[in-house]
Each structure stands twice: as structure tokens, then as C-alpha cells.
Design a protein around this nucleic acid. Structure first.
Lengths: 157, 157
DNA sequence: TATTGTTATACTCTATAACTATA
DNA sequence: TATAGTTATAGAGTATAACAATA
């Protein structure tokens, strides 16, 4: 802990002012801890989820399953990926026969992305596994702690 | 959006087997939220930290600054990266003249990694910026919330 | 034999910029 | 002009596996 936290306001002010670097401890930084937590989650994900699907691929397919066909841009935004990233992820899934696209009759610029039968089948099998990933990731926490963590993290995103 | 569950037997079995997947909402999963939070942190990092250094590169240099010269493997473990990843990160930083290595006189297998003068100078400039990144990332939270979040996240890693 | 480090390979994610097609 | 999508390019992080050198 860098500085005395007896007074939160003072602590924050100090962190911004002169103390911005003094007392900086890597292991206590939000970015460092976030990376490690996400890394552990990803490892558990790779162990448990069939396909194999990466977390990002799963997100895309899960979203399509929840929301139905979406244009590539909307799909990407809904899972927080930019257009180029989305295209890469979608292309790989199309190549594996899990997704397909068709032109939007309402707007010729749009390519609606949707799950193929194989994709729908896989996501049905993957979702319970993904639920287990969540469970295992959160295993060190009690139920109230889990809710609190999710709530706090949501505020950051 | 599951497949049709009209078959009664299948439906019952599915009700239990699927229980982990029913009510699964992507946006509420710890992995999804972690990825978004880390992504936002990384974006802020890229905006503010000079070098430019990525969060991972910064971690490595910051650790060396805190702990002094380390063997490549120990360095990697201390920032939660495997040997191959560590090598990639270290090589890029060596290529930029920010790190250097020398053989450990005590153990010929080891390459001690250390900050060059340029590296030490850069990390001194980057640390205050990184402190600002932490501040900006956590801006939506009060001081007690920040402590709680860090504490909960630490339990996951 | 165990540890440290290297190398090769592969995949994935991310972003920027320039471009085409459509509204 | 604005939006949707594509393509090219570049840089990174991650992991596995096979290998060499050293202890």
C-alpha cells in the first residue's frame, strides 16, 4: 500500500500530485491485477470449453445466440471489438463452418452474421462449460463477494 | 436460442443438463467483464504512458526496477508470463536498448536481465504516467470501492 | 535428471489507415 | 456526406513442443 489510507480523499489527491510514482507498487495496480485475473480465466476457459473456442470467439457466438443475426459492425460493438478485430474473429468462425453471412435485404451494405446449425449446436454445448468456467474462476469468492466484484468491474467498463 | 426441445424426454434431461447454461447472460460473466475492463485500462495506458510501452512491457521493466537484475525465468514468473512470452517481450525491449543481459557468474545457464541507463530513465518517466492510468481507470469508483475491488481481484489471481 | 534458456511454430487479439460500396 | 464493410499492415501476447546447455 503506497500511502496511508486514513483519509481517502487525501490519498487520492496525493496519488495524483507529487506521489504519482513514489510508492508505486506493480502488484497493487489495477491493470496488473486485471491482466492476471483475465489470464487465469482464459486458461480455465481453454481447459473446459469445447470447440475449441477462445473467449472472444465464444462471446461472438453467444451474442449471436442471444440476439439473433447482427451486422458485423453491430456484433463487434456489442462485444467490445473494433471492426477489424471482429472481421478476423468472424472469418475464422466462418472458415470452421460455425457462422455464415447473408446480405441484409434492408441495407445492402450490411452483412448479417448468424450461427449455422453446427454453430448453434456447439454454442449449446459450450454454454454450460462456460458457466463452469465462471464458477471455477469465482471459486475463491463467496456469493456476496462475487456480486460485489461484478458490480464494481461493470463500473469500470 | 436453443434448438427445439419438443421431444419430452430430451426436454427434461436438457432442463437439468442445461441448467448451467440457462440464464447464462454474457454481459454478466466474469470473463467478459474482465476482458472489457482490461481493455479499457490498456487503452488509457496507451494514451498516457510514454515509450511507448505496452502494459506488459511496463510490468517487466517496473519489476526489474523494483527487484534488480533477474534471470529471464524468474522475471517472467514474477509478472505471470511463461518463458516463451517473456523472451519475446525481453527481446523487443533489448532491441530498443531499454534492457540488456549478462551471464550469471554463479550459474552459467542464467541470463540476468537488467535495465540499461535508457531503460531506467524511461521507467522513471513512465511510472508517474502509469500511476495516472490507475487513477483514471479507477475514476468511477470511490476510494473504499477501489480497495474492495483490488482485494477481490487479488483473490482471483 | 532437472533446470534454464532458446527456437520454431501457430494462433489470437488489437489497432490504424486506406479503400470500396451503399444510403 | 455518412455509414458499413473490407483489406493491408503492423505489433503484441500467448502457448506448446522440441532442443541445447548447464547444474
Amino acid at each position: 500500500m503506497p500511502i496511508s489510507r486514513s483519509d481517502p480523499e487525501t490519498a487520492v489527491a496525493a496519488a495524483e500530485a507529487d506521489d504519482a510514482g513514489r510508492g508505486y507498487v506493480l502488484d497493487e495496480q489495477i491493470g496488473f491485477v486485471l491482466r492476471r485475473a483475465y489470464q487465469r480465466n482464459s486458461m480455465i476457459f481453454a481447459e473446459r470449453v469445447p470447440g475449441p473456442l477462445t473467449p472472444t470467439q465464444f462471446s461472438v457466438m453467444c451474442r449471436l445466440d442471444e440476439a439473433g443475426p447482427l451486422s458485423q459492425n453491430r456484433l463487434g460493438r456489442s462485444v467490445a471489438m473494433d471492426a477489424a478485430t471482429t472481421k478476423g474473429v468472424v472469418d475464422r468462425l466462418i472458415g470452421r463452418g460455425l457462422l455464415a453471412t447473408r446480405r441484409d435485404p434492408e441495407d445492402g451494405r450490411r452483412h448479417l452474421v448468424y450461427l449455422t446449425a453446427a454453430g448453434a449446436e456447439l454454442i449449446d454445448a459450450a454454454r454450460p462449460a462456460a458457466a463452469e468456467v465462471t464458477e471455477e474462476t469465482l471459486a475463491p469468492l463467496t456469493a456476496p463477494e462475487r456480486r460485489r466484484l461484478l458490480h464494481l468491474l461493470s463500473k469500470l467498463a
